[in-house]
C-alpha cells in the first residue's frame, strides 16, 4: 500500500490538520469511484453505506490499523466525503433537468411534490448545516450514522460518550431534520 497514504493516515490520526486536509480529497475520490462502480456494477448490488465506507477504509488502510482517536478522525472525514459526493451528484442531476428541479406527478393526488432525490439531498445538506449551528455534536452523530453508516455503539466509542447519549442525539437531530425536510417539501419552492 502507498506509504505516503499510511503516513498521512497516522498523521491525521494524531490530529495533524494538514495531513487531514490532504487525506480528504483522496478519500473523496476513492468513495466516488467506489460508489459509481457499485451502482453501475454487473451484480447490481445496491450498497449499504457501511459496506461502502468499509470498502474504502480497507483499501486505503491496507493492513494498517488506527487507534480510536485515529479512527474517529478517519470516520469523520469519510462521512464528510460521502456527504460531499452526494451533494455534487445532486447538483449535477439538478442541472441536467430542464428548468431546474422538475415537478413530478405521483400517484398521490394530494402530494405537493414527488420524491425527488436530488432535491432531498440538497435539502438535507441545508438542514444539516442548520443543525451544526444548533448542536454540533448531534450533527456529528448524524454524519457518522447516516453518511458513514456507523452503528450507535461505534459512534459512542469514537465520541467518548454513552450509547444512550448517541441515541438521544440521533432522535433529536432526526426530529429537527425531518421537520425541516417536510417544511421544504411543503413550501414547494421547487416548482
Amino acid at each position: 500500500m502507498n506509504e505516503a497514504i499510511t503516513d498521512l493516515l497516522f498523521a491525521a490520526g494524531r490530529g495533524d490538520a494538514a495531513a487531514q486536509n490532504r487525506l480528504y480529497p483522496l478519500l473523496y475520490d476513492e468513495l466516488h469511484r467506489c460508489a459509481h462502480r457499485q451502482l453501475r456494477g454487473a451484480a447490481g448490488d445496491t450498497l449499504s453505506t457501511t459496506a461502502l465506507v468499509n470498502e474504502t477504509c480497507l483499501k486505503l488502510l491496507g493492513g494498517a490499523t488506527l487507534d480510536v482517536s485515529g479512527r474517529a478522525h478517519f470516520m469523520a472525514l469519510a462521512a464528510r466525503a460521502m456527504r460531499q459526493v452526494l451533494i455534487d451528484s445532486a447538483r449535477r442531476n439538478g442541472a441536467d433537468k430542464r428548468g431546474g428541479f422538475a415537478l413530478k406527478v405521483t400517484l398521490d393526488p394530494n402530494a405537493v411534490t414527488a420524491p425527488d432525490a436530488a432535491a432531498d439531498v440538497l435539502a438535507l445538506d441545508q438542514a444539516l448545516t442548520t443543525l451544526e449551528q444548533v448542536d454540533e455534536r448531534a450533527a456529528r452523530v448524524v454524519q457518522l450514522h447516516f453518511f458513514a453508516g456507523l452503528p450507535f455503539a461505534e459512534i459512542a466509542e469514537l465520541e467518548g460518550i454513552t450509547v444512550r447519549t448517541v441515541m438521544r442525539d440521533w432522535q433529536a437531530a432526526r426530529a429537527l431534520l425531518a421537520g425541516q425536510l417536510r417544511q421544504d417539501a411543503l413550501d414547494g419552492s421547487r416548482a
Binding site: A35, L47, S89, A117, D120, L124, A178
Partner: peptide, 15 residues
Amino acid sequence: SDVLDGSAAQLAARL
C-alpha cells in the same frame, strides 16, 4: 421520514 429512515447509500442510489 423517507430520507432519514433510509441510508445515504439509498439516497445515492436514487440519485
